[in-house]
Design a protein around this nucleic acid. Structure first.
Lengths: 359, 359
DNA sequence: GCATATTGATTAAACGTTTAATCTGCTTCT
DNA sequence: AGAAGCAGATTAAACGTTTAATCAATATGC
């Protein structure tokens, strides 16, 4: 097996020209049924695998996409990477990863590296507070639906609203929302949704972990026990990561979950189902998000040159806001002292069709 | 800006041949200092970026490596990906990701896809219980030092021993080790190390989560409170994931950590530092592991063809076992009822130089 | 002063694919 | 029967790089 068979090997073996073989394989030119079959058989026999490099050089398309996450170390990265890789692979594309190590300015460097490597397009999940400028090549941005230039994203706002409704449903009237950075579009959407649900029905207060840590050091106590004493009965974190922090801090403080207070998260990270109590959370439909992002990217790539569509206007406008799914587990329960199914907020149930894990 | 400048653009602009430009850029052939500088200046001026496709076609090297993790959704994946990407990028390589969705058989399919995509070599973190056969191209396997064919890995065994010593140091004499699958080399190494440390100094018992879940369903209680009643004072999980499960289950059961019992993990996952209590754990030196894996891979790639080194025997034999680092946080403390610094196991301290997080 | 290295450059082929343009027989129409 | 059309193939150029082989001119050795 001297390296790999190529088109000309097949051509030589059959006494035809390379062009004919190429046409037969791609089904593009004019080749007789008969000869076409013969060629494809021979190709399989010789174990022919097209050279991506040759094709790339000839067509100017590498059939490789770049994936840039602001911070590759983010616990959500695996889900993203898996979904994107799958969608891209289905479409015949490979996925090259780029890392910016959380650094704002390194983000664009990472993007550039990928472009220099020949990526036909880039999927970006930008760092909070940054925007992606024109990089001269197709981009799909996954941030939040309210972000200008966003391609596709989960409906974080509605997700927040469903979490809010879920807690209201359980009788909670005072919730503390836990966020990290106030410049994250995603977090602000989620928070906005929760607040909208609570508007006129209960009170919300807001905790920014980032700010607290700047004052009291990383890993500091969030003072949640104190909040419980002040009457807060539910904590809605904008990420499972913060929900986890809340749960452990509360448990350590002797507060029972969901007996005394409820805690909810966002994202359904891998461990959400196995902690005690397992975490009620809101899950993005990564598969669909990835599919749409990739589809958009590919349509941009293929139009490119011919269509001359201005990069600002996206093809698949409108269907870019993907519903989230409420996953009810053990960490959320009826407000303390509430009769089993009483005082529920009427008319709110039913908008979501939540998944309930068996325990 | 009509697409991108290439070698012949530069050549034309300067009235020299493409070959000379190529030589000047790569510093390989014979070019005068003078002309070399001129060419490089012109290249910069025109914003020249070499075409990887052209180069790949000519040299037969894509300068792309594949990264295959058994399960891309594993929480350790971000760390791996980040480290590998960094090391590869430093060496001038891009990283293509492949996913096998945890499926055993899909693992080899993923590897093949990457090879067909032209990856010059593959980094594999195999699924527990699988081995990587000869795939006809350079591979670096990151599993455990005791795995045959392994290229580089953390010293899981010694890591286990240090965890064991740490717990012994704190006065614990009865530890429950928590693992997931009994066919994981990594886990078995870690467990072996812990047991070695405890041999003759205390008793260990073993819990396989995988087995329990097969019997009682996913997310079931591990019955840890019961073990505490039986006299276990410390839990050593072989992954932070399981440590987290243990901590929350114990906390929910009203057991104080580290007051009543200690809990330790492995891997230092992102959230290990921010839960309450923060988690004492053992960290791999991903940077070094990645560096060595990449270096090994590249040396294989470059020897290939010339050296004709049998793929089984690795170049960098010996230095492939990277020490782990003990990170002492809040979740481990002296055994209940033990005077502050008494009854410590003598002669054990000092073998490790642990990092202690400030709180 | 003539053969020989050495330096600095050029030429040309090669990598594997795609694709527009061309060529050769055949069929079909008038 | 001659022109036109068409199916089925081939030719040849192009993509951008690398690299072995070659060549001209200058420096070195005796």
């Amino acid at each position: 097996m001297a390296s790999r068979a190529n088109l000309s090997d097949i051509a030589k073996a059959l006494g035809v020209s390379v062009a004919t073989v190429s046409n037969a394989m791609s089904g593009k030119g004019r080749v007789s049924q008969e000869l076409g079959r013969t060629i494809r058989e021979k190709a399989k026999e010789l174990g022919y695998v097209p050279s991506l490099a040759g094709r790339a050089l000839s067509t100017g398309r590498s059939h490789v996409l770049g994936l840039v996450l602001a911070d590759i170390a983010h616990p959500l990265f695996p889900q993203f990477a898996q979904a994107i890789e799958h969608a891209a692979s289905e479409a015949g594309y490979g996925v090259l990863i780029g890392d910016s190590r959380g650094d704002v300015e390194a983000q664009s460097r990472a993007i550039n590296r990928l472009i220099e490597r020949g990526a036909d397009g880039i999927v970006v999940v930008p760092r909070h507070g940054t925007r992606i400028g024109d990089i001269g090549r197709p981009v799909a941005v996954i941030d939040s639906p309210t972000t200008p230039g966003n391609t596709v994203a989960a409906d974080h706002w509605n997700g927040g609203r469903e979490i809010g409704r879920h807690l209201l449903d359980l009788g909670h009237r005072s919730v503390a929302i836990i966020g990290l950075h106030s410049d994250s579009n995603v977090q602000n959407d989620r928070i906005g949704g929760i607040r909208e649900a609570f508007a006129g029905r209960g009170e919300t207060r807001l905790i920014w972990i980032g700010e607290m840590e700047r004052r009291h050091g990383a890993g500091c106590s969030l003072g949640l026990v104190r909040l419980v004493e002040e009457g807060v009965t539910a904590f809605a974190a904008v990420s499972d990561l913060h929900a986890l922090r809340a749960i452990t801090e509360l448990q350590q403080g002797g507060i029972s979950i969901p007996g005394d207070v409820s805690v909810t998260g966002f994202d359904d990270l891998v461990w959400a189902g196995v902690i005690a109590p397992s975490l009620t959370t809101m899950r993005m439909d990564m598969e669909r998000i990835a599919e749409i992002a990739i589809a958009d990217l590919i349509s941009q790539i293929e139009q490119d040159g011919a269509g001359a569509v201005p990069h600002g206007l996206k093809a698949s406008q409108g269907q870019n806001c993907i519903p989230m799914e409420l996953i009810i587990r053990q960490s959320s329960g009826p407000k303390l002292g509430l009769p089993a199914s009483d005082e529920r907020t009427p008319g709110l149930r039913g908008s979501a069709s939540p998944t309930v894990d068996q325990v």
